[in-house]
Write a protein that binds this DNA or RNA. Sequence first.
RNA 1: GGGGAUGUGGCGGAAUUGGCAGACGCGCUAGAUUUAGGAUCUAGUGUCCUUACGGACGUGCAGGUUCAAUUCCUGUCAUCCCCA
Length: 631
Amino acid sequence: MVIAPEHASVETLTTVDQKSDVDAYVAAAASKSDRDRQDEKTKKTGVFTGSYATNPVNGKPVPIWIADYVLATYGTGAIMAVPAHDTRDFEFAKQFGIEVIPVVSPPKDHDIDLNRLAAGEVCFVGRGTAMNSGQYDGIATDEFKSKITISLSEQGVGSEAVNYKLRDWLFSRQRFWGEPFPILHELDEEGNKTGLLKAVDAADLPVDLPEIEDFKPHGRPEPPLEKADDGWLYPVIDGKKYQRETNTMPQWAGSCWYYLRFIDPKNDQVFIDSELEKQWMPVDLYIGGAEHAVLHLLYARFWHKVLFDRGHLQTAEPFNRLVNQGMILGDVEFTGYQTEDGSWVSVDQITEDEDRNPVSPSGESLTSVKVEPDDVEKDGENFVLKSDASIRIDSRAYKMSKSRGNVVNPDDIVSNYGADSLRLYEMFMGPLEQSKPWSMNGVSGVRNFLDRVWRMVIDKDQEQPVLHSAVVDIDPTDEQTRTLHKTIKAVSQDIGSLSFNTAIARMMEFTNFFTRQDHRPKSIMESFVLLLSPFAPHIAEELWLTLGHENSLAYEAWPKFDEALTVDSTVEIPVQIMGKIKSKIVVARGMSKDDLLATAKADPKIMALLEGKTIRKEIAVPDRLVNIVAN
RNA sequence: GGGGAUGUGGCGGAAUUGGCAGACGCGCUAGAUUUAGGAUCUAGUGUCCUUACGGACGUGCAGGUUCAAUUCCUGUCAUCCCCA
């Protein structure tokens, strides 16, 4: 058995002989972080308590050890080790010479060495059948687990438990900005705390922060709220004097349930009206940074479930769908490394010293140097210096940070390119959930697109915005109509799947098409402006007004598409021979397999290539391709 | 250590069910236009071979399944993010 160094029973279990060793070990463990303690690269440490437990199944004595790889805050803080079948337990047992008894026999097809397993020399972590387990021998692992649990609970020496992976949570902060805890400490005649606590009466909730001049931390352990006026700090209730709790709650206190309060923010009776909750909850789509994927989601969901279990909410789950947007990194940078005398060292030659500083193979310390893109070229898989192709250069985008100096200030982008460009670029960069590097060239690219949209609708040569002479009130051609309907369909679908980058690409294609058209029907331009409006609201609104509307486009319905108008009547189909494209044929949409094959074989190029060959197989997929296997 | 994700041109990326790899944008090249620059327009742009026609190769790497693989399977390498 192994217990955590912080376990409550450490003192009682430690024998006189072992006391000094145990005390020293517990003190050392206290200075290590949980993560260090669980790091499997570091050697397992531990100390024997001198005591033994009795195995309730076979009555044998089991030595009780203390080791810091067991965490007090996780589960019960004590484990029954199974060294033959858990890598951490195995390492621990090996290191301290504890007996390793295999109790799970691997499945037949497993390639583990059975003799070494029997001898306790290897560890097997998979499932199998029980061995060395008395009456349970031969039973499959899963079945064994449930049988032994039942047996132990029947004997009254154990029971099944669900272990929630939520650790204890420190929920107080010593700073001003935070919700005050609605808790009162009773004071005696001299003003000392009696130790009795009282919750603030429900009628007096919520407890607001007091108005105080100086709310900065003062360097002492007492929270800044200690500096509040006596009127706030020392309420008197029924003749008894109290002191308010002066710790405040962390940000979590708000972020865990704000989505509920936002639905009903002015309600002073309850935190959310149940009718409104029914109407709005659960949240349809929650978009947040990847760091929320575990923490915020875990806590917010925990709070929500507590409120639900307590009957304050009717929805068991807070969020229907969670999307974590990726991080925007800085511009891609090229980094080379130089010795003190300025000579370059190739990136693949570099190692790190103990302080993680780069060093050359000969041990010289190196400085990293930013290399201009013009001085770098691609050589096979790697980037190298143009001046010396043997010097490899690092190429990557880093997280934006002040120290690296690669922070992009959105205000600068707004003033140089406009808010629409910033917004559009962020959506055009790539998939929402992916982290991706910033690129100033990319920003000017989307700005370019917006300029092209502007010139598609508006006469650039006039002082005031007036319609381009090509934008006229006429009926669109079939091709124009199809282009519009295809664009509406694609943009609508892409928005639904949050694929904003491809939605924008489709609008660019639309613009490329219509800037070549001598006549651009006004109705089509109007539909397009509506499609663009969620992406670039400012320019869209401006175009909408210039197209002759008095009200904001915000009141307009989203454009609809006609499925029949999104497909062309003919399709171009590749014709392959042996899986390689040899020709293309244009056929009516929906042409049958047989007709496709016949058309393909009538194609002059294909005919020539099939000359004198035997056709082994013919594959035709309508509207897709033809493949003829022949030799 | 645990958990999550990603590898496609010079760069960001695209490719419902396996079915034309590289949409769209940036960059680059050439031309047009402009007093000039920025801008704009037109054409080209995966790599290699070929005067050309055309051909070979190509989605991290190594295998496999298939008429057909960025997509499916097995193995492997690398990188990034998060950890109360």
